[in-house]
Design a protein around this nucleic acid. Structure first.
Ligand SMILES: [Mn+2]
Ligand SMILES: [Mn+2]
Ligand SMILES: [Mn+2]
Ligand SMILES: [Mn+2]
Lengths: 235, 235
DNA sequence: AAAATTTGTTAGACTAGTCTAACTTTAATA
DNA sequence: TATTAAAGTTAGACTAGTCTAACAAATTTT
């Protein structure tokens, strides 16, 4: 049985493993992610190593063991299913769900999660477009680009967000954007990459920083036609 | 902000206050209820007193302050709404809900509970027949008797259970009983109060201990007719 | 009323999780 | 390569919550 705190460390390590191609993390990075001091993280890493959940040697890089990864994915599954429940069933907005799901993800009951999954009709993605791991712990990886990579004149469809912060999510709505919205890139400035886009007939100017936090697939893939990009967006 | 543990102490004190007419509790009693040692309860009582949640003097009786009671009722509200959700929406059985609700009741989000309440269509009673406090903290008290008090030859309807343990709840189902079932008391032995009852045409023998844990209202009240008992069952 | 029992408190210790301050190792850079 | 900077660890301390063992107060019984 894992404590609340241990679960949060595993989840943070999983997140960091997705963010680095080596699938490894550092102590400071981990500590920053959990809003604790590095000394605290070191202590916990010793415990998690002892429990066989992480691979870790003093002064070395950190990675999850198979067992640790399975636990971490299970927590992510719970988090995203709860977010989906809050959004779809209880009509929370997409910027409200994360905070509550952070608590709900620690509820221990396999039956609860399976029943919830069934009730929600086995959703594939959460309200932020992130994939929901299935019962086996498999995660559907969707190939996607950021809006910042889309050339002027091209069209695409928004499928997820990178930044999950309340302020960003509210800003996205304010600009008239949202998941599954079609976006036309009108112009892009050479100097600072400021883009002009059109969504539902409305034009907006967005910065590069903003565009880098919006995930899209190319217009053809979104429409179910053969992909015209080098990667298959929907693979 | 109350900790998980503090909330459990308040909830236990509320429960004990309902069980004694003086609405007071003792340290040992409290400790037993929470499965901790009396020394532990004493320590916590000092803290709760400090926070203004309980009235307590060394070697004296314990009671909740108005603030403490409000918090405790809020936790009970959450517990019972979650039990209702698990039972009605996710199809848990009535002996499975309590354990999970013990965890869910600590989730901090007023919005979540209000939305859940609305989603469930403002239920009045949980799967065990216990009243769900409303948003204002008001609890509907239903006048009811135990099955053990019903005379031979009389009919009644089951409205709640006293014992919430898994084993009792499963036993109730096995006997063919359940909430809202009509019960006819056929016989009662003078010697040991063993009762014979009929439910849905099926006869069963039940002990006094069992009967004391089943709450009923008299047949007339159940049918919406004037009450024939000294108290108004449905008051 | 005295003795015995029950009830409740205190003192001291332990674990989980956190911190600060000092220190060590590794990596980067001059 | 020697120095500096960054990353990571250790030591010691703190809080919340728990325990045991010894003690004190209140209640019940004789
Ligand atoms: Mn989230
Ligand atoms: Mn999400
Ligand atoms: Mn319950
Ligand atoms: Mn209940």
């Amino acid at each position: 049985m894992l404590s609340h705190t241990e679960e949060n460390y595993l989840k943070a390590l999983l997140k960091l493993s997705f963010e680095s191609k080596s699938e490894e993390a550092g102590t400071n990075e981990l500590a920053a992610n959990l809003a604790v001091k590095p000394a605290t993280a070191t202590d916990m890493l010793k415990k998690l190593k002892e429990k066989g959940l992480v691979d870790y040697e003093k002064y070395g890089k950190i990675s999850l063991t198979a067992v640790g990864k399975t636990s971490a994915i299970d927590i992510v599954r719970k988090h995203r299913l709860w977010e989906t429940f809050l959004y779809s069933t209880l009509e929370f907005t997409w910027d409200e769900v994360h905070e509550v799901a952070e608590q709900l993800e620690h509820i221990q009951s396999a039956k609860l999660i399976d029943k919830l999954d069934k009730f929600l009709n086995y959703p594939q993605f959460d309200p932020h477009g992130d994939p929901i791991p299935n019962q086996k712990g498999e995660i559907k990886t969707q190939f996607k680009k950021t809006l910042a990579e889309i050339a002027a004149g091209k069209a695409c469809r928004m499928v997820a967000v990178k930044d999950n912060s309340k302020s960003f999510l509210q800003y996205v709505v304010k600009v008239g954007l949202g998941l599954h919205h079609d976006i036309k890139v009108l112009t892009r400035q050479e100097y600072d990459a400021l883009m002009e886009i059109k969504v539902n007939g409305i034009k907006s100017s967005i910065t590069q920083k903003f565009a880098e936090n919006i995930y899209v697939v190319c217009s053809n893939c979104a429409a179910g036609k053969p992909c015209t990009e080098t990667i298959d967006c929907k693979q």
